[in-house]
Design a protein around this nucleic acid. Sequence first.
DNA 1: AATCTTCTTTAGAATAATTATAAACAACGA
DNA 2: TCGTTGTTTATAATTATTCTAAAGAAGATT
Lengths: 136, 136
Amino acid sequence: MTSKQVFIEKLRNSSLRPTKQRINICEVLFNRDKTFHFTINDLFNLIKDKTGDKVSLATVYNTVHAFHKKGYLKEIPINSNQTYFDTNVTDHHHFFDVKEEKLIDLKNEDVGPIEIQKSIPGKKIKSVEVLVKLED
Amino acid sequence: MTSKQVFIEKLRNSSLRPTKQRINICEVLFNRDKTFHFTINDLFNLIKDKTGDKVSLATVYNTVHAFHKKGYLKEIPINSNQTYFDTNVTDHHHFFDVKEEKLIDLKNEDVGPIEIQKSIPGKKIKSVEVLVKLED
DNA sequence: AATCTTCTTTAGAATAATTATAAACAACGA
DNA sequence: TCGTTGTTTATAATTATTCTAAAGAAGATT
């Protein structure tokens, strides 16, 4: 089974029609060994470079949001003018190299367990994100 | 000594001229018991409401950035279209109520110590921020 | 106080990321 | 193949933020 067919299945299972554009985006995003951190604009440019096909910017936005909603992508909480996404949707954290504007994964075991000893009535914890800013 | 005079001193000590606008902004930001989380737009509206004076949006941006640079305000790393600032510049963390778009302070002792067991050659840690997202 | 310099404010223009629109198009099921 | 529904696309609209350049205010000097 080629990766393309895997992606088609994945899309169908999420009730997203497997269009050429979405499959291309999957190839760029998920045909990787390592986790991938990107902005919409990064992705937009990579699609052209890697697949030869041009996909409109609006479709990149639509697709990334759809994938995010389905849990295939994670949004990284960071102060930047652009929104960063991560193909690693497991529970983990990040270094952010402020100077180079680059994200680096921090495995969960690289960060000790985090104990939140406060609770808000009627609310439960959805996620715990650690951002470690780096400087020279 | 009135709060106004305290703010004038504070501004002078930072080589920022104590203008009417900056003093008004100080009153809104720092005449508080509790820590204050805000966006530029929140602040812009509060100035009108609380002081009666209108300050231009550009000045609010300028002043918030100046205060941030001087260390009187902290930027909160969060995914939002707007930038959030905090008058509490001590080392601490946040809950973010996703539904209500509201930030709540987490004292450092409410979050156990965080050990970062990975390092990047040539880089040192500038800050460690924890964001705990809340849902119903 | 009058003057000069430097810093600050301001309205509005410019920029940049993102979202909305609505027409053309493609996937799917009958 | 045909009709329905979902998708893509170019472009316009929106929103947060930054830039610009002229007018105004603060501080220092006389």
